[in-house]
Simulated assay, not measured.
Amino acid sequence: MIVNSDLTMGEGVIERHEVETFLTLAEELHFGRTAATLHVSTARVSQTIRKLERRVGVPLFNRTSRHVSLTTVGRQLHHELRPAWDDLRAAVQRAIETGRGLSGALHVAFVSPAAAQLLAGVTQVFHEHAPDCEVRIREAQADQILPRIRSGEIDLGLTTLPLDDPDLTHGPVLVREARMLAVPAGHPFARRASVLTADLTRVPLVRLPGHTDIPPRQAGAPPATTAPTAGTFQEALTLVGTGQGALPAGAHARRYYARPDIAYLPISDAPALEWALVWPADRHTARVRAFVEAADTLIHGHGTTRQPPQ
């Protein structure tokens, strides 16, 4: 492995090839073998060592026609430089493995049961190409998934778009689903086949931190009336079921959160809710790329966008 780094020495800089030449000669104690190991000429080895000795100010090697040995200063330099150089090479190698490698662990988060089911399928495809990389799937609340991605606690997460953060990026849209409105089973809306976005101003909406399922408000429309704030999606549905408000949600909620006290109605004029994998723009590692590609293969392998369970 070649490390393109320089080290300071006194008022000058010791270059990579000088370090490698010195360490190799200190261990081979033979100019010819050192030259062969480094794939350079013997003259180049001699020139490099003389330049290094001028910078240090004292000889590093005793040379005779038959014998090469380290001086006292040379032994000291080798003793101190070898472990430092090995540590530097190991650190660079670890960085390379993190950026390019497909081993280790990949932490992926989700915010709904449907997303968890999808990630399980993506993981199976991912492991076909990266069997040595462990995928750890974790649940996150809607208001915590993006902060956990930014902090590096998780590598990427499956969540809804759009993103309002220039430090984050996302892969292709994996799922598009209709938007629904969860209302109490006894609410007048529950007798309708669907609602419009304008209807959302007629009911109090339960607030849920990080919840992005609320469709965009039409220009000129009055703001929606807000109901109590919930800490989790299940808590929000409980508030709905007890008649304290309504809750916009993705269509998957009708299957994964079916409740006798709640009715789900399509919001017929709302744009589809889009789901994608999100990760920090500056941490686009090989593992992240491979996982995003696995998701794209699973969902778009036949040229269509998968629809979530209805």
Rank of each mutant, 00 (worst) to 15 (best):
L23R: 12
L25C: 04
A26Y: 06
E27W: 03
E27Y: 01
E28I: 07
H30T: 04
G32N: 08
A36D: 14
T37V: 10
T37Q: 15
H39T: 10
H39M: 11
T42H: 11
A43K: 09
R44Q: 15
V45L: 05
S46R: 14
Q47I: 01
T48D: 11
T48A: 15
I49P: 05
I49F: 04
R50L: 09
R50M: 08
R50H: 14
K51C: 04
L52H: 06
E53N: 07
R54W: 00
G57T: 04
G57F: 02
V58Q: 15
P59Q: 06
L60D: 06
F61D: 01
T64A: 00
V68P: 03
V68F: 01
S69Y: 00
T71V: 08
T72H: 04
V73H: 11
R75I: 00
H78T: 12
H78G: 11
H79G: 07
H79M: 07
H79D: 10
E80V: 09
E80Y: 09
L81R: 07
R82T: 14
R82P: 02
P83R: 12
P83E: 15
D86W: 09
D87Q: 14
D87E: 14
R89K: 15
R89F: 00
A90M: 07
A90I: 00
A91C: 03
A91P: 00
V92Y: 09
Q93V: 08
I96S: 09
T98C: 04
T98F: 13
R100W: 02
G101Q: 00
L102E: 11
L102C: 09
S103P: 00
G104L: 04
G104P: 05
A105C: 08
A105Q: 12
H107K: 10
V108H: 05
A109S: 15
F110W: 15
V111Y: 05
P113Q: 04
A114F: 10
A114Q: 15
A114P: 02
A115T: 08
A116S: 12
L118K: 05
L119C: 10
A120K: 10
A120H: 11
G121Q: 09
V125C: 03
H127N: 09
H127L: 13
E128I: 02
H129G: 00
H129F: 05
P131C: 08
P131F: 07
P131Q: 03
D132H: 12
C133E: 05
C133F: 08
C133D: 06
C133S: 10
E134R: 12
V135K: 04
R136V: 07
I137E: 12
R138S: 13
Q141H: 07
Q141I: 01
Q141W: 04
A142L: 13
D143Q: 14
I145A: 09
P147N: 03
P147K: 05
R148A: 13
R148T: 07
R148P: 02
R148L: 13
I149R: 06
R150M: 14
S151G: 03
G152I: 01
E153L: 15
E153N: 08
E153H: 13
E153F: 14
I154S: 10
I154M: 12
D155G: 04
L156Y: 03
G157P: 02
G157T: 04
G157L: 01
G157V: 02
L158P: 01
T159N: 11
P162G: 12
D164L: 13
D164I: 09
